[in-house]
Design a protein around this nucleic acid. Sequence first.
DNA 1: TATTATTTTTAGGCTTGTCTAAATTTATTT
DNA 2: AAATAAATTTAGACAAGCCTAAAAATAATA
Lengths: 220, 220
Amino acid sequence: MEISVTEENYLKAIYSLSTGGFDVSTTALSEKLNNSAASVSDMLKKLSAKKLLHYQKYKAVSLSKLGEKTAKAIVRKHRLWEVFLLETLKFGWDEVHEIAEQLEHIRSEELIRRLDIFLGKPRFDPHGDPIPDHSGSLPATRARSLFEYAKNGSYVFVGVNDHSPDFLRHLSTLGLKPGERFRAEEHNAYDGSFKVRIGRNTRHFLSQKVASNILVKSGT
Amino acid sequence: MEISVTEENYLKAIYSLSTGGFDVSTTALSEKLNNSAASVSDMLKKLSAKKLLHYQKYKAVSLSKLGEKTAKAIVRKHRLWEVFLLETLKFGWDEVHEIAEQLEHIRSEELIRRLDIFLGKPRFDPHGDPIPDHSGSLPATRARSLFEYAKNGSYVFVGVNDHSPDFLRHLSTLGLKPGERFRAEEHNAYDGSFKVRIGRNTRHFLSQKVASNILVKSGT
DNA sequence: TATTATTTTTAGGCTTGTCTAAATTTATTT
DNA sequence: AAATAAATTTAGACAAGCCTAAAAATAATA
C-alpha cells in the first residue's frame, strides 16, 4: 500500500500526540500540523480507509497496529538520520531537526538498514530519544528528568523533553551538550530549582521548568 | 523563488538531454519523464514564466543561465549522494540510482556542503561522471568521439564535432537524437567503421568519418 | 435541562501536476 | 506545391491536499 509523504506526516504527528495512550483530537492535530481542522478531518477519513487508524465521526482517533508500525518506522528513520547528521557530518545539535524531517521520507528499507549499521546500531538519538529497532520495538529507557531526581549529585545530560529551538538554544548558551556531565550543588525543594556546576568553574541556575525538560542519568 | 520537486526533475531531464548543445523537444522530454506531451507542454510554459528556460511555441527548449545553474545544483547533489551510497554505505553499483533520485531533492545547502567535505570533495562520481562544484563548474573532461573509443559496447550519443546541416540531417535519418542510446556491435579496425544497433532492431553502418563526428559517452 | 460554546464535519473552491481528445502548427513526402 | 504525417498546444477532467464558510454534533454552563 502506498503512503504519501503527507500521510506519513499525519501518522507521525498522531503518534507523537498519543504518548500516554491518549486519543488524538482533530483540533490538536490541526495545531500540530498547522492545517485547518477541515483538512485534518478529510485526511483522517482517508487514513481510516487505509486501516491506519481507528476513526469514528466526532471522536478522537488512535493509530491502528499498522498505523503505529508505520509511524515507528518513520521515527526510526528520523532519529537515525539525526545521528548521522550530528556524528558523521558534525552538525550542531540544534540544526538537525529540519533536515531529518526531509530525510525521514526517503523510501528505501535497504538504505536504513545500511545507515543503521554504518552508525553502529545506535539505540538513542542525540537528544536522548530512543530509536525503534527494525521491528518497531523501543529500547527500555530509564532516562528521567532532573526534576524527577530532585536531589543533588552528579549527573550526565542525556536528552531533552522539550525539543523546541528556543529551549535547545538556551541549553547551548548554558554549554549543555548531550553527554555533558554536571553536578547539582543546590536543590531548592520549595520551587524545584537547581544550582549546577558544569566543568570546574561554570555555575548556572536552573528553573524548575528547565530541570523538568532536561533528561539525565545518575553520573557515577 | 520556490522550485518544486517536479520542476527540479524537469530541469534535470532537460539538462541531461541537452548535452552537446542540442535544444530539447517536447516529445523527447515526454519520453524521458514518462509523461504525456501535453503535460510537458504545460510545464514548459511554467518553467519559462519562472525564467528557467527559453521557450517559444512549437520550438525546442534550452535552459536559461538560471535553469542551468539550478539543474547543475541538482546533479551535484545526486552525484554526491551516489558517492555516499557507494563508498560510505557500501551499496552495490546498480542500487544507488533510485535512492539518489530521492536524496537529490533534499533542501539544505549546509547538508551538501558538509556531505561534500565528509566525502573528501570528490570530483567524479562512481560512474566517472563529473560532479559540478559549489558554483556549478564541471571538472574538465573532454567528450570523445566513437572513433576514439574504437570498440564495441553501449554508448549514449551526446553531441557532434561537425555541426553542418548535412551531417545533422544524416544523423536524423539514422534516428540518432541527443541522449539516444545505441550499441556498437561490430568495430572494423581496418577502416574505423562501425555497425551499430539502435533500439531493438534498427541497425546502421557508420563510416569512420561519421564515427569521428559523433561524441559519445560510455552508456551504463 | 436548556442554552451557549466548542469541536468536528460537510460543501464548495483553489492549485499542482497529471491525463485524453481534439485542434493547430510544423515537417515530410509525393 | 499539395497532401499527409508528426509534433505541439489547447481544452476539459481528475486526484491530492489544502482552504473558508456554514452546518451538525458534542461539550460546557447557567
